[in-house]
């Protein structure tokens, strides 16, 4: 049985005179133990989607199953119980400002009626897990963003949930802190076997810890699969844009122009062959390297390059098939890079 199953999910918001379809017939299956990334541009419907997973947002149409249970069939009370088994963390941390770190972590246990002593013991353990033992008595206003998110993670884990939902959990953090929070989430996933759903608009978050990814564009699920696959050969425009987007910041030029552009991704074994040099020698024609980068995707080193090919359609096609023969993933790039 899948941990989370979303079937034909549609969500429409009724504003005064117009209806906004935030989600349009989404089908998605998330297996136990997955770190599942949901990525999309701002306003794509990511937050709405993650909020339907614990029914903070009720679908207009379609169903959400958690471990085979249709959430729509639960009573209010049963639903609250179910929610306590689905942890959630947020971009803005959402800690209780008037409660100490320990009391924040104890809070979900207090709601569940767990004895105070027991709750404190649990909180102590969890603060150890997130490496914040020394801040137990401090109040949230005295913590940095990364520390606040650690407290939020400890709090979300207090009720020993099966699922952890993360809505832009690292978007307010700097790159180093983001990395440390992501590593913490990975550790939690490995140690506790918790299924993690990560909402983000940054491809780097997905490539660094997710094993699967779904791409949401304007309320539609446009692509879904293993992160490696989609990173190597994105099919939808939205996926290509998201993958290229993160790279724009590293580009020395605003717009790199070329007649025809392709993006190639090296996997570990192909990276050592001097592919580009061989390509040029083989065809005796110049090739422009518009951009090059290496990234860590699911623990494996991946290199990517965007090449500007020389003029002449025949030559271009030959070059592309030559590259493909060398087991490189090749995709056309139409956008300005």
């Amino acid at each position: 049985m899948s941990e989370i199953e979303i079937k034909n999910l549609t969500k429409t918001f009724k504003a005064k005179d117009l209806n906004v379809t935030a989600l349009n017939n989404i089908n998605l299956t998330i297996e136990k133990g997955d770190i599942f990334g949901i990525i999309g541009m701002s306003g794509a419907g990511k937050s709405t989607l993650v909020r339907t997973i614990n029914f903070l947002e009720r679908p207009t149409d379609g169903q959400v199953f958690i471990e085979g249970v249709d959430l729509a069939t639960l009573s209010e009370k049963e639903l609250r119980k179910k929610r306590s088994k689905i942890g959630m963390i947020f971009q803005s941390f959402n800690l209780l400002e008037q409660k100490s770190v320990t009391d924040n972590v104890c809070f979900p246990l207090e709601l569940a009626g767990v004895k105070k002593k027991e709750a404190r013991q649990k909180a102590k353990e969890l603060l150890k897990t997130v490496n914040l033992e020394e801040k137990a008595k401090v109040y949230p206003s005295q913590l940095s963003g990364g520390q606040k998110q650690r407290v939020a993670i400890a709090r979300a884990l207090a009720t020993e949930p099966d699922i952890l939902l993360c809505d832009e959990a690292t978007s307010a953090l700097d790159p180093q802190t983001t990395e440390s929070i992501l590593q913490l989430l990975k550790e939690i996933n490995e140690k506790l076997g918790i299924t993690i759903v990560i909402i983000t608009h940054q491809m780097s978050v997905v490539t660094s810890i997710c094993n699967k990814v779904a791409i949401i564009d304007n309320g539609d699920l446009v692509e879904e699969g293993a992160v490696e696959e989609i990173f190597e050969s994105p099919k939808s425009d939205a996926a290509k844009e998201l993958i290229l987007d993160t790279k724009i910041r590293y580009s020395p030029l605003d717009v790199l122009e070329a007649e025809r552009k392709v993006r190639i991704v090296f996997s570990e074994n192909s990276a050592y062959e001097p592919v580009i040099a061989n390509l040029i020698l083989n065809f005796n024609a110049p090739v422009n390297i518009l951009k090059a980068d290496t990234r860590n995707v699911g623990g494996k080193a991946k290199g990517e390059m965007i090449l500007g090919l020389p003029e002449g359609e025949d030559l271009q096609e030959q070059m592309i098939s030559w590259l493909k023969e060398r087991n490189l993933a090749v995709t056309e790039v139409k956008e300005d890079v």
Partner: peptide
């Protein structure tokens, strides 16, 4: 956001 977090924890 804090209210939302409490709801997500299963608060009545």
């Amino acid at each position: 956001g804090v209210i939302e977090a409490a709801k997500a924890m299963g608060a009545s």
